[in-house]
Design a protein around this nucleic acid. Structure first.
Length: 466
RNA sequence: GGUGCUAUCGCCAAGUGGUAAGGCCGCAGCCUGCAAAGCUGCUAUCCCCAGUUCAAAUCUGGGUGGCACCUCCA
């Protein structure tokens, strides 16, 4: 298996810290609002990575956190008159629901910041003891970036003197402008936690480092975990700061490999709330099935930026439709696991830094090939068996094709309409039998008016939503 | 200003030294009562210039365009 490490900036052979095991940590959402398409993309990428690691035989422990302490959360709670817990519980649940809709498997561990305060405070204490952190007169605790000779090596940045001098600082008490907060003192008695450093709240960067140490890390190895992932925007400062905190407070580096996924833009523009509806995953899910969104969002390489637009989404849907039509042709047959050359090639493609484009091309080829043979006369017992095994493999590793193929094509059509359509189809079949093609075509037009197209096959007439 | 990424058919998008995958759209054909679906066939020399090489989309240098990050952010 090969993965691109965004620290070394090159594709590397993947060798886990401990044979056969992988520890994977991904930065999860701050639960103050609904998940947007960017969250979806990131979650999908690492869901796929995890599945591919598992398919390669690794015993994977996957952790994705929930950030439920944050200024944005506190502000929103104040505005809405809800408690922090009401708010974060609501959005955490919404996040889970959205993720389920697009086929993202649950992580093995889902730590919350509020449940990891002790670990965070321990880490701050260590950093204070090691002189990597300092407390200001007003009670804030900052990480001393000057004390870490490796600071900025993860993101390959250079401290810029001009920038440092020009930037207006929010706190005059910091030793260096680059220093970041580990603990923010809260004096006004609003939302705060007790700690050895006084009442306050933890800094965002600290959360991930502490949770990794508490829930996931190896104690005695050079790195705490194998892979750390997240959106491209997190490389700096978030991951840079995480890495610094971990290396200065423990005896190991944070992660052996760093993986960052590209951004999602909408119609060529950076996502922003002002763009409206399509911004949230839950809104996109009203119009498109989760699986189609999954297929579309995964269809290009994870490191490229992704330009979300309806035209490409429709084009992706048509590609997924073909997989389901093949499934329809083999509906009802018994599925048994069976290793095929196709599966080997598919896994090989995915194991090459998640080359989904190539993997998709292999699927297209497999589908076309199966259709071609099924079109010829004959029993094709072996082909059917292998094709079913291949479809099941795609379902497991990529998460596509898990639905009933007939229901897949009926998304968004209510039961009453379905009954009407079926009645009309029955009438049309009778008309066809009687060779009354004028009536048959008239009935087909009526059915088409429901946004449904018909397909006459040897085993009957089927319909699909257009 | 700093740092980094990127430029392949109408659209999306693989390919990182050996002579351009795949999907959507389009055209032609097979199949079909007609369609739809499915199948077959057809459509690019890879932003520009220079260089390295027997050989470059793929490496190097320069140019032009696009994008991202620079302490809120998946």
């Amino acid at each position: 298996m090969y993965i691109f490490d965004s620290h070394q900036k090159k594709k590397l052979p993947f060798t886990p810290l401990q044979k056969g095991k992988v520890k994977l940590y991904v930065c999860g959402p701050t639960v103050y609002d609904n998940a947007h398409l960017g969250h979806a993309k990131s979650s999908l990428v690492f869901d796929l990575l995890r599945r591919v690691l598992v398919a390669n035989g690794y015993d994977v422990t996957y952790a994705r956190n929930i950030t439920d302490i944050d200024d944005k959360i506190i502000n929103k709670a104040k505005e809405s008159g809800k408690t922090i817990k009401e708010l974060t519980d609501f959005y955490t649940e919404a996040f889970h629901k959205d993720m389920q809709a697009i086929g993202v498997q649950k992580p093995d561990i889902e730590p919350k910041a509020t449940q990891s305060l002790e670990a965070m405070q321990q880490m701050i204490q260590k950093l204070l003891d090691n002189n990597h952190a300092y407390q200001t007169p007003s009670g804030d605790v900052y990480f001393d970036t000057q004390s870490d000779s490796e600071y900025l090596t993860l993101s390959n940045r250079v401290q810029n003197e001009e920038e440092k001098q020009n930037r207006v600082e929010s706190s005059q008490e910091k030793k260096n402008s680059a220093d970041f907060a580990l603990w923010k003192s809260v004096q006004d008695g609003t939302i705060s936690f007790d700690s050895p450093f006084g009442k306050g709240r933890p800094g965002w960067h600290l959360e991930c480092s502490a949770m990794i140490e508490k829930h996931l890390a190896y104690d005695d190895l050079e790195y705490a975990i194998d892979i750390h992932g997240g959106g491209a925007d997190l490389l700096f400062p978030h991951h840079e700061n995480e890495a610094a905190q971990t290396r200065c407070s423990t005896n190991h580096q944070l992660a052996k490999y760093w993986i960052h996924n590209g951004f999602v833009n909408i119609d060529g523009e950076k996502m922003s709330k002002s763009l409206g509806n399509s911004f949230f995953l839950k809104d996109a899910l009203k119009e498109y099935q989760g699986e189609v969104l999954r297929f579309y969002l995964l269809s290009t390489h994870y490191r490229s930026d992704f330009n979300f637009n309806t035209q490409d989404l429709e084009s992706a849907k048509k590609r997924l439709d073909k997989l389901y039509r093949l499934k329809k042709r083999l509906f009802g047959l018994e599925v048994k696991e069976e290793q095929t050359p196709f599966q080997t090639k598919l896994l090989e493609a995915l194991s090459d830094d998640l080359n989904v484009s190539f993997a998709f091309a292999l699927i297209d080829e497999m589908v076309t090939n199966a259709n071609e043979i099924l079109d010829t006369k004959g029993k094709h017992k072996e082909l059917k068996r292998q094709t079913l095994a291949n479809l099941a493999y795609i379902e497991k590793v990529l998460g596509f094709g898990q639905q009933n193929p007939f229901e897949y094509f009926q998304f968004g059509i209510d039961e009453t309409t379905k009954e009407k359509i079926n009645t009309l189809i029955e009438q049309r079949t009778q008309a066809k039998k009687a060779k009354d093609f004028a009536l048959s075509d008239k009935l087909r037009d009526e059915i088409l008016a429901y946004g449904v197209q018909l397909m006459d096959t040897p085993s009957g007439t089927f319909w699909e939503k257009v």
